[in-house]
Amino acid sequence: MKIVACYKIVPDAQDIAVRFDGSLDLERSEWIIGEYDLVAIEAATRLAEVSAGSAVLLSAGGKELTDSKLIKSALSRGAQELYCVVDQAVANADAFQIASVLAQALKKLEYDLVICGEGSSDLYAQQVGPLLGSLAGVTTINAVSKIDIQGNAVIVERTLEREVEVLQLALPAVISVTTDINLPRIPQLKDILAAGKKPVTIWSVSDVGALPPSNVQTVSTRAPSSIERQQVIYEDASEENIKKLALDIKAAR
């Protein structure tokens, strides 16, 4: 089975500072692979291993994507090859634009299954996966918490609020996976060294198609305002204290 995992690079949230006006200072933040996308990469790699298939990576973004350390980091997690669409215009693209570019790039690749994370680690709109599936005109499923291969069939589970849905996918398909599907592997030195030797293909937007106009206007990005800690301590988990905690939370809202 040929599998494609999509990923996005995001500023490392650990080092994002909030300015006095609530705006975000990304100055000290290094670019990293989104944590939900690491789960997608892991799912693709494991599936390729059990199906004796292949896993390749696909991304679209600004020139930061081509940073050789980031590329090695992505390829040290088991996939064989990496494709990315690099264009400054894509760096600030909205979810629909990104999905369009990815869908155009997918046309150049052979695939049975595309795996996305449940959302990006920065904006977490959870849109790119479903948009990509519908733009590509293939089966589109989100919230996948388990993938199984039975013969030629791919069976997935979706853990919904009251039930677990078990579906057989009509391939090709684009799925988005939840974080409980796996724990991404930790690359070892030999994986890191091997990553530097794997093939990387870089396309511009015009190589794959064109960037559609954006329908989204970002007015501002602000951190939620914080409030003073209340310093309330509940001595134990007694019935009474739990009720008190619940009341305090309600009152605080």
Binding site: S68, K69, K72, S73, S76, I186, P187, Q188, L189, I192, L193, G196
Partner: peptide, 14 residues
């Protein structure tokens, strides 16, 4: 080197 940095990242994650 990038390899050293990535290895240290793996260590920190583990």
């Amino acid at each position: 080197t990038e390899e050293q940095e990535l290895l240290l990242e793996s260590l920190r994650t583990a």
